[in-house]
C-alpha cells in the first residue's frame, strides 16, 4: 500500500518540476519585470538598473529559476504590479473565497448525484432512469459559461431569487448569523451551477456500478439470507459503490478549478478564477505566474488524491 503511494508521489515530482519550468519560461516571455510598475516620470533609470542588479535580473537563467522556486516554496511570489501588495496576500483572501465556493459545490454535487445515480441504477430502464440518463447527458454537453449566464439571467435578473454579484451584503457585520447566511446566499447560485454540471461523471459511474452489483453473488447471498431489498441497497450495494465515488473527488477538484475561471467571472465572485482573468487583463504578470503555479499544484494534488483513493479501494491497481 505505502509502496504504491510513495511511487505515485515520486511520479508527481518530475511533473511538478516540468510544470514549474514551463511557467518560468512563460514568465520570461512576459513583457516587463517586477520594477516596471515602479517606473514614474521622475524615477532615475540608473536606480531601476541598480534594483534589477540587486534582484538578480541579469543572473543566468538557471539561477533565476532556482531563486524563483525557493521563494515560491516559501510563499513569496513577489509583488503585484497593479495592486502594489505582496502576491501571496492578494491571493490569500481570494483563495478562501474560492475554497468556500468549492466546498459548497462539492457538497451539492454529491447531494444531487448520489441519490440520482443509485435510484437510476436500481430502477434501470424505468421512466426515472431515462430522465436521469437524459439529464446527465445534457449536463455533460452544456458548456459552463452558457449555463451560468442563463442561470444568472433567469434566477438573478428575471426572477431576482439570487444576488447577481459579490460575496456578502454590506449591511451585515462580520460574525453574525445574517452575515453567514448572506455569504451562503451569495455563493448558492454559482455553486448550484457548478454542481449541476459536475454530476455527470458521478451519476454515470454510480449507475453502472449499481447495475453491475445487482447481479453479484454477494447481493444474491444477502437477498437469500432474507435481508429486505431496501436494506441490501442501502447497506450492501451503496457501500460498495460509494468508495470508488470518493475517487472522483480529485477529478472534481480539477474540474472546479478550471470552471472557477468562468463561474467567478460571470457571477462577479471575487475568487482566484476572477483574479486570474483580472490579472491577465491588467497584465499583472507576477500574479498570473503565482496563480498558474498554484492551480497546477492543486490539480496535481487532485490527481494524486484520486489515484491514492483508487489504490486503497481497488487493490488490483496496486499490482501495476
Amino acid at each position: 500500500m505505502w509502496k504504491t503511494i510513495i511511487r505515485r508521489v515520486l511520479v508527481m515530482i518530475p511533473q511538478l518540476f516540468v510544470l514549474s519550468l514551463l511557467i518560468f519560461i512563460m514568465a520570461k516571455f512576459m513583457p516587463g519585470d517586477p520594477f516596471t510598475g515602479m517606473i514614474t516620470p521622475d524615477t532615475d533609470p540608473a536606480r531601476i538598473e541598480e534594483l534589477r542588479q540587486e534582484a538578480g535580473f541579469y543572473d543566468p537563467w538557471y539561477q533565476q529559476y532556482f531563486n524563483w522556486i525557493m521563494n515560491a516554496a516559501n510563499g513569496d511570489f513577489g509583488k503585484s504590479y497593479t495592486y502594489k501588495v505582496a502576491v501571496a496576500d492578494l491571493i490569500g483572501d481570494r483563495a478562501l473565497n474560492t475554497l468556500w465556493l468549492s466546498l459548497l459545490s462539492v457538497f451539492l454535487l454529491y447531494l444531487i448525484a448520489i441519490p440520482l445515480g443509485v435510484l437510476a441504477g436500481r430502477y434501470q430502464n424505468s421512466f426515472l432512469d431515462k430522465i436521469v440518463v437524459l439529464y446527465s447527458f445534457i449536463s455533460y454537453a452544456i458548456p459552463v459559461f452558457v449555463l451560468a449566464l442563463i442561470f444568472l439571467f433567469f434566477f438573478g435578473y428575471k426572477l431576482q431569487w439570487f444576488p447577481t454579484s459579490g460575496t456578502v451584503d454590506i449591511k451585515y457585520d462580520s460574525g453574525t448569523i445574517g452575515y453567514l447566511w448572506s455569504k451562503i446566499y451569495h455563493i448558492l447560485l454559482p455553486a448550484i451551477t457548478f454542481a449541476l454540471l459536475g454530476t455527470t461523471g458521478v451519476i454515470q459511474y454510480l449507475r453502472t456500478e449499481v447495475i453491475d452489483a445487482k447481479s453479484m453473488d454477494y447481493v444474491r447471498t444477502a437477498r437469500s439470507k432474507g435481508i429486505p431489498i431496501n436494506k441490501v441497497y442501502t447497506k450492501h450495494i451503496f457501500r460498495n459503490s460509494l468508495l470508488p465515488i470518493a475517487a472522483f473527488l480529485g477529478f472534481t477538484i480539477t474540474g472546479l478549478l478550471g470552471g472557477s475561471i468562468f463561474i467567478e467571472t460571470i457571477f462577479g465572485y471575487p475568487g482566484m478564477g476572477q483574479l486570474f482573468i483580472q490579472s491577465i487583463s491588467g497584465r499583472d504578470y507576477s500574479v498570473i505566474t503565482a496563480l498558474v503555479m498554484l492551480f497546477g499544484f492543486t490539480t496535481l494534488l487532485g490527481s494524486l488524491l484520486s489515484d491514492i483513493i483508487m489504490s486503497i479501494v481497488d487493490p488490483r491497481i496496486r499490482i501495476d
Binding site: G258, I261, F276, V292, F295, G296
Partner: peptide, 14 residues
C-alpha cells in the same frame, strides 16, 4: 494534469 485552460489563456496573451 496541468491546468491547461489557464496556460492556454497565458499563451494567447503573450
Amino acid at each position: 494534469t496541468i491546468p491547461s485552460l489557464m496556460i492556454i489563456i497565458v499563451f494567447v496573451t503573450i
